[in-house]
Amino acid sequence: MNKLLTVSPSPHEYSRESTRKLMYGVVIALAPALLATIWFFGWAALIVTSVSVVSCIIFEYLIQKFILRIKPTITDGSAIVTGLLLAFCLPSNLPPGLVILGALVAIGIGKMTFGGLGNNPFNPALVGRVFLFLSFPAQMTTWPLPGGFNASFTDALTGATPLSILNENYDKAGIDVLMSDPELSMPGYQELFWGNMGGSLGEIAAFALIIGLGYMLIRKIITWHIPVSILLTVTVFTGILWLARPEANADPLYHLMTGGLLLGAIFMATDYVTSPMSKKGMIIYGTGIGVITVLIRRFGAYPEGVQFAILIMNAFTPLINIYMKPKRFGEEVKNG
């Protein structure tokens, strides 16, 4: 045999998992929500999503190729995930120029300034979204109502989101009063579940997001710790508020299904790079997000707080990683 033997350190066997497969797994998990949003918002949703995804990929490529001068890694799929998530927290009538700006901030500032994939402290999509939200509050807070493919872009009906209605009416009226007021046209539980209401692209259809969660759990892309701890915390916290004063608060179920809570808890808080690594840490992180979300929703000026909550807890992630170590084998001896 003339071929030389290969020598490498053990192990010699590798699993089939790869970064790319994980990222495309997230994309697949986002697909049901994407289909739902296209169903409700028609072409507008498709345009915003594709502009966001394509510009994220292009910005990543350009920055890596010409500024960082490293081999572009756009095929790993992380830019697609960022693009999709960014689009999912934008309203369907946002002008493409703003979407592109958001993508630039998300990839350029949120990701590449820190050294690219794996090094960013904050979820890039949320950095882009928060930038747009603070810079263009008017465009970012008018959501068209669902009109399907027949709706025209220009004069789509816009409406307030259920959370902003709630925000204005805390301490004034309970959820049942608000829901029975025809003038407010608050969506009912069914609309919330299926997504037939106004809102950002990805946050309307609860069922589609839950399908995505199921897929990611089955494929073991994520573990249950973060989404479950967030949703449980929100349920408990809003449940206490609701039980204490039902006439002034919305019930937990309504809170769970409105706004970007599910999208955030399932897809954004679980971003590998910006979430803690030990199971204990994940639960602390999730609980923190849940608490901050409810605090902002109920007591803050903004109707929605998931994105801010995630960004705030992102900042705590390194600290959590330092103090929340996994249980070492043989650390405390309990024999039996």
């Binding site: 030389l4 033997l5 290969t6 020598v7 490498s8 350190p9």
Partner: peptide, 13 residues
């Protein structure tokens, strides 16, 4: 050469 090294490019390793 009598073999081919396929590991991390670090002399000590």
């Amino acid at each position: 050469k009598t073999s081919r090294y396929d590991g991390e490019l670090n002399c000590t390793i």
